[in-house]
Amino acid sequence: MTPQPIVDARAIHKHFGALHVLKGVDLKVAERELVFVIGPSGSGKSTLLRCLNRLEEPSSGSIVVDGIDMLDPRTDINHARQRIGMVFQSFNLYPHMTALGNVTLALRKVAGKSRAEADALGHAALERVGLADRAEHTPGQLSGGQQQRVAIARSIALEPRVMLFDEPTSALDPELVGSVLAVMRSLRESGMTMIVVSHEMGFARNAADRVVFMDDGLIVEQGPPAAIFETPAHERTRAFIGQIQRH
């Protein structure tokens, strides 16, 4: 791993009332690395992801992303978040805007681009996800897979340094999963740093640099995909992998 990780989260704790969801998680991610986070539901993996761009406020710990202290109250969080793309399970496209409108909103209102500049960047981003011809469609006119690709375009248009994927294919019909994974693969090939919470084990196996297994608010073990999938060191990891692969 490079000496200066682009994501450096240390001792992250998160409480929801009496519920202790994250119990001291450390996660370092190197530039251009693709890290897969797996684990049973309720293990805290999505919460960890959402803490990284502060959609959830960690109860304690420290998070530095691309040299910016995310938890420092003096940090301009809206500025910092432009560098951290996020893709959600339910796409969360704005239904009252076209695909291009979805992609250009933050370009215009946060990055301060003119409409013409934003439109050009928006079209380029849609082209990268293979949807150049869908710019004027509204989300309701697009399939789930296309919507998720628009959501990815919305993030990459801002040229983030890191991309967070929160179960990006879980809401998709099986035949649409491939198109989204293909876009993620091409992003990876372009050198994007990615943290992916997902159960797409096939994708993890041949695209991830590292797989992190979480259970009960802690990282149980991590390593190269082959090691985690073939020879897990912990019983809990073995049980989880076994369950997933039986399906």
Binding site: L55, N78, H79, I84, M86, P95, L105, S155
Partner: peptide, 27 residues
């Protein structure tokens, strides 16, 4: 309006007020 709409906007750097004005209120 689902909370995910605001989260999507905030994750791209929109302020609370911008997310309200451009995303939540029109819907």
């Amino acid at each position: 309006v689902p909370q995910g709409q605001v989260e999507a906007g905030r994750s791209t750097g929109l302020s609370r007020l911008q997310a309200m004005g451009y995303i939540v209120l029109p819907q």
